[in-house]
Amino acid sequence: MKPILIAPAAMTALLGACADMGTKVDPILDGQPTAQFHSDLSACRSLARNQSQLDHETMAAAVLGAGLGGVLGEVDDDGDALGGAVAGALAGAAMGASEASDTREAIVLNCLRGRGHAVVN
C-alpha cells in the first residue's frame, strides 16, 4: 500500500480507537457515593465524550509532526520525506489525542465536582 494511502487510514484507526479515551475514568471519592453518583457519572462521561478528539490542537500537532517528519526524512540518507511526514503526522496526532484524552478526564472530574460530589481524583 502506498504511504499516501496509509496515513488517512492510520489516522482514522487511531482516532477511532481513542473515541472513549478519557471518559472511562473511575473517580476516587472522599466518602461514600451518593444515590445520584452513578447517574451523574454517566452524564458527565457523556458530556466529555461529546468533546471532539479531532480538535484544532490535535490537527496542529499532526501538521507540525508531518512537517518535522518530512524534514527529518529528507535529511536522513536512507529516509524519504513522504515516509517521514506520514510517521510525523501519526506521532503528532497521537500526542494531540493524548492531550484531548487528558482534557476529557478533567471534564468528567470537574463535572462531578460541580454536581456536588467529593471527588479527590
Rank of each mutant, 00 (worst) to 15 (best):
K2L: 09
P3H: 11
P3E: 09
I4F: 09
L5G: 03
A7L: 15
P8E: 07
A9S: 07
A9R: 04
A10L: 09
G16C: 10
A17K: 11
A17S: 08
A19S: 13
M21Q: 14
T23F: 09
T23E: 02
K24Y: 08
D26F: 10
P27E: 10
P33D: 01
P33Y: 07
Q36M: 00
F37H: 03
H38N: 09
S39H: 00
D40F: 09
L41K: 09
S42I: 07
S42E: 05
S42A: 15
L47E: 09
L47T: 14
A48H: 06
R49A: 01
Q51C: 04
Q53F: 14
H56Y: 14
E57N: 10
T58R: 00
M59R: 14
A61D: 11
V63S: 03
L64E: 07
A66G: 01
A66K: 04
G67C: 14
L68D: 08
V71H: 08
L72P: 01
E74D: 14
D76T: 11
D76R: 13
A81G: 10
A81Q: 09
L82Q: 11
G83F: 01
G84I: 12
G84S: 01
A85H: 09
A85C: 04
G88F: 10
L90I: 11
G92V: 06
A93S: 00
A94W: 14
A97Y: 02
E99A: 08
T103H: 15
R104N: 06
R104S: 08
E105Q: 15
I107D: 07
V108I: 06
L109A: 04
R113Y: 05
V119T: 03
V120Q: 10
N121T: 15
N121H: 13
